[in-house]
Simulated scan of single mutants.
Amino acid sequence: MKKYDFFNPLIVVVAILAFLAMGYIGSFNYRFEDPLDAEVILTIIFACIVFAVGYFAVKYKANVKISQTNYLSEKLLLALTVIALILQSLNLVFLGGIPLFNSTLKANATTNLWRVAYPLFLITLNFLLAKYYSRKYLILIILGALIFGLNGYRTSVLGILGSSFITLYYLDKISRKFGIVFIAIIVVGLMAVGYIASQSIAGQHWTLNPMELIFYRAAFTLEVFERIIPLAGTTHGKILAMIFSSGSPRTFIGEYVLHYNVCLTSTIFGPVMLDFGYIGLTIQMLFMGAFLGLVHKIKNGVGIGIYAFILTHTIIWIETGPTDIMIWFLYLIGLIYIIMMLFKKNTGSDEI
């Protein structure tokens, strides 16, 4: 595990191709009469190539090695992490139940309280691990995954467990045995949340087992993208405007593409394709490849945590699509980190 950098930005390309493979298999078994259209496959391969070009464009530039920042105390980070858990617990209390077991509550679970609690927990947890690692803080990872998982969304569970795993990996705290156990927890946690949530949807009766459900979801999401391609560039930036203002981009996509009032995932490529076509897709994937490549290159101290939660949520976007302003806020933190590190390099300073 020390010999190879398993979590360099190209892991996004691997994850995209794995998702495509699962969707292709799922399209035979659960969703389509015909397999995925060739244009879908070629478009996704093209997007992967553009992402890789962006990554390699910054990979071979001069290295930036800077000492870690010292202005975040352990007590402050621990306090903020605990506060985030308390806020999410209060969110569940105010909802009046457990959204994981109630589809009506789940539809209203992403409250403003949750929008504060989740990013606060994600950020401070990874900063705490990156700067002040201690075995006792592993308890916070499990608590966070459990408490936020009760909202009924797999993305929260993957965001917490995945980013923590990547942070610990770069701290060289992942032994082979620990790594296998941690990955098993991630897989089981995601399957459990997804399956339980699907069984609690009112008016729907699922017969798929947890493993079949994963392939079905991949196939369905890629089917949405397949239907988006002929509509490329027809929304003229409306989805992008909705992300940074009001409204529900995923619901808009459901109404625009399938003509149903339903919240849809449309892959990492879907929203930008609808808004700006292949030109927009090229710019987005080039940006993501270069951005992740740069954060990966200069990660140090809390920068390890920053890279971990940005990479994790970029991988999550492969299915869900980059339609969450809250996650773009994580990218903003990465941009601020890049500017700070480059400023420190140019001034020769070890402090901000």
Rank of each mutant, 00 (worst) to 15 (best):
K299C: 06
A290D: 06
T312G: 09
Y307G: 07
F291G: 09
A308K: 12
G305V: 01
I306T: 12
L292Q: 08
N300W: 00
Y307C: 12
I316R: 05
G293L: 07
K297N: 05
I315Y: 08
T314K: 12
I304H: 10
T314R: 11
I310D: 04
F287E: 08
G293H: 02
H313F: 15
G305A: 13
I310K: 13
G305Q: 04
L311Q: 09
G305W: 01
V302R: 11
I304G: 00
H313I: 14
F309Q: 10
H313A: 01
I310V: 15
G293Y: 02
H313K: 11
G293S: 04
N300M: 05
H296K: 14
F291V: 07
L294W: 11
T314H: 14
T312S: 14
I316D: 13
H296C: 03
I315M: 14
I315G: 03
L311Y: 03
H296Q: 06
I316N: 14
I306Y: 09
F287C: 08
V302L: 14
A290N: 02
G289I: 11
L294G: 00
L292F: 07
H313Q: 14
K297M: 04
L292V: 09
T312K: 08
V302C: 00
I315F: 08
I304M: 06
I306F: 11
G303T: 07
Y307I: 06
K299Y: 00
I306S: 11
F291T: 07
A290R: 01
G305D: 04
I310F: 10
F287Q: 06
I298D: 02
Y307L: 05
L311V: 08
A308V: 01
L286D: 02
I316K: 09
T312A: 15
Y307R: 04
I304C: 05
G303E: 04
I306K: 12
L292R: 03
I316H: 13
A308M: 04
V302H: 06
V295W: 05
L286W: 00
I310Q: 09
I315W: 03
F291H: 00
I306V: 15
M288D: 02
V295E: 10
H296V: 12
I304D: 09
L292T: 08
I316T: 14
H296D: 04
I310H: 07
L311E: 09
V302P: 00
I304Y: 13
T312R: 05
I316Q: 13
F291R: 10
M288P: 01
I310R: 05
T314M: 14
I315K: 10
Y307D: 00
Y307N: 09
G289E: 07
F309A: 09
I306W: 11
G301D: 06
F287P: 09
T314I: 15
H296I: 05
G303K: 10
I298Q: 08
L294N: 11
G301E: 10
I310G: 06
G301K: 12
F287V: 13
N300H: 04
L311H: 11
F291K: 10
G305I: 00
A290V: 10
F309G: 01
I306D: 01
Y307E: 02
F309K: 06
H296T: 03
F309N: 08
L292D: 07
F291D: 11
I315D: 01
N300V: 13
F309C: 13
A308S: 15
F309P: 06
G305C: 03
F291M: 12
G303Y: 11
F287N: 02
N300C: 07
H313Y: 15
